[in-house]
């Protein structure tokens, strides 16, 4: 077929196919994935006793708030990354707030905790729950989000997938944090971040595989 013929043929389909916008699909994907994650969470883990009282401490609240703040910022970036030539924009700088805050909290906790207690708080007693839980709780949301982003056209699929993983991990970590009773930043600033990093890496790998077009 000649290129001119192809163009003539494509032109007959000029009106845009009525399809839900990328943003709407992503919203639905996150909602469905989030529902699965929440169900999984309530069935297997559930919130800690005395959650509201614990959360009245701002340093405990931060372990829920920071990932919750990260999620929409990463989601917006993943949507930008799904459109060719759309820059990530100022969101990328805003997205630095949660990790920088976490690092600050870690340093603050390090300086205010007695030398003898630091290591015990850092290691805690639930790393073996924390890391797999954050990873697994992220997966349904990653799946929902990637399903939506496939309708986009990411020119760097791994980056787009990583951002989707980051957004999903933000939500999953916020949910997980209501179960976790390790309230020292020496614990959560490190291990939550590692869990989020794992989910982000999974997102990048899945993106390379499923976001190509």
């Amino acid at each position: 077929m000649k290129t001119e013929d192809l163009i003539a043929t494509l032109a007959t389909e000029a009106p845009m196919a009525p399809s839900a916008s990328l943003e709407r699909r992503a919203g639905l994907g996150v909602a469905f994935g989030g529902l699965v994650t929440l169900t999984l969470f309530f069935v297997v883990l559930g919130p800690r006793p005395g959650l509201l009282i614990a959360m009245s401490d701002p340093f405990t609240l931060a372990k829920t708030i920071l990932p919750l703040l990260l999620a929409p910022l990463a989601l917006i970036m993943s949507l930008h990354a799904a459109r060719p030539a759309v820059p990530l924009g100022v969101v990328r700088w805003l997205a630095l707030i949660p990790p920088v805050s976490a690092a600050g909290l870690f340093l603050w906790a390090f300086s205010t905790t007695g030398a003898g207690d630091r290591f015990a708080l850092f290691i805690g007693h639930s790393i073996q729950v924390c890391l797999p839980a954050i990873t697994i709780l992220s997966l349904p949301i990653i799946a929902g989000l990637l399903g939506a982003l496939r309708h986009g056209a990411p020119v760097r699929p791994a980056r787009c997938g990583a951002l989707a993983g980051l957004a999903s991990a933000g939500i999953a970590t916020a949910i997980y944090s209501t179960f976790c009773v390790e309230d020292s930043p020496l614990f959560y600033a490190v291990w939550y971040s590692l869990g989020i990093g794992i989910a982000t890496g999974i997102g990048a790998l899945l993106g390379m595989r499923y976001l190509r077009w």
Binding site: I7, L22, P84
Partner: peptide, 20 residues
């Protein structure tokens, strides 16, 4: 050309066309 056609919804009317 087919890709542009299939992904034409990823261009928003407020975005510049050429970089896209």
């Amino acid at each position: 050309l087919l890709a542009i056609h299939a992904k034409r919804h990823t261009w928003r009317e407020s975005d510049p066309v050429t970089p896209w």
